[in-house]
Design a protein around this nucleic acid. Structure first.
Lengths: 138, 138
DNA sequence: TCTTGACTTAGACATTGTCCAATGTAGGAT
DNA sequence: ATCCTACATTGGACAATGTCTAAGTCAAGA
């Protein structure tokens, strides 16, 4: 059993077949699927799984911090299981491919006190954009 | 006539009543309206303006660089007319209010060469999140 | 003032996400 | 092993946001 399933069990989750296949889909390295992509891949293993269950499960995984929601393009949200290592995203402006990247230093530190307007800062998310090698050479 | 309308005329735009009212709505300081909010405000001055025209005009303003599209929450995109001064956004996690802010230094510089994976970098957008003073004290 | 090609319109359609009542079931209790 | 029941799943309606098209309208140059 994967670590993720064990952590879910520890939290008192019922381990249904549906939740297992959603967890398996997200188990890959550095995947950034939309909810519908997760649904399509889950349905290959469990054809009767419903869209609502996929949305429910993804929402629950996000709310307990096991998965991060990423909106890089204002369209469908993507779900990133790499939640236990702080990182940012590098996106190709043409083909949309996404890579996890780690900036040096804390992006929060770049915002001077005079630019914080009394806010209690919590986090900074950075999206780097450019052309990936394939798109740049095409 | 506002500078924006003059620039649009210089580009050969037909200055229709619809485009004028959309430009007027975006003329305020530091507004971050959704397309539907722009439509509602435009319709106060020109009741028959259609949603399609507002979407068309906003899309055109974005493509010529007069307005910036901002997605802070994965829901409706917001339109930011402060396009001629580089800036980032500070968002209240509770009430959603948005402020324009200027980090010190270029966020792009934080991404080491070894984390660029051969991409040709173009820009970095940063979203700072936290609680605004009103929400923090409530 | 005419003409014409660009602009606008209403509404159908597409995509993404949420909600609900009915049904099913995981896992503890017996 | 089986039963219970609270929790989970389902299908489909609904909501929010955005796109597209065919037909009508109009800004601005001739």
């Amino acid at each position: 059993m994967s670590d993720l399933l064990q952590r879910l069990r520890d939290r008192g989750w019922r381990l249904t077949a549906q939740r297992r296949v959603v967890a398996e889909v997200l188990d890959g390295e550095h995947v950034h699927y939309t909810a519908d992509e997760v649904h399509a891949r889950a349905a290959e293993k469990l054809p009767e799984i419903s869209r609502a269950t996929v949305y429910n499960t993804l929402g629950e995984l996000v709310s307990i911090g096991e998965v991060i929601e990423v909106s890089t393009d204002g369209r469908a949200k993507r779900y990133d299981p790499n939640a236990h290592h702080s990182h940012q995203h590098l996106v190709c402006s043409r083909c949309g491919v996404i890579r996890d990247v780690r900036p040096s230093g804390d992006p929060l530190a770049l915002l001077p006190e005079g630019e914080r307007y009394g806010f209690t800062l919590d986090e900074a998310t950075v999206t780097y954009r450019g052309l990936c090698p394939s798109c740049a050479s095409a």
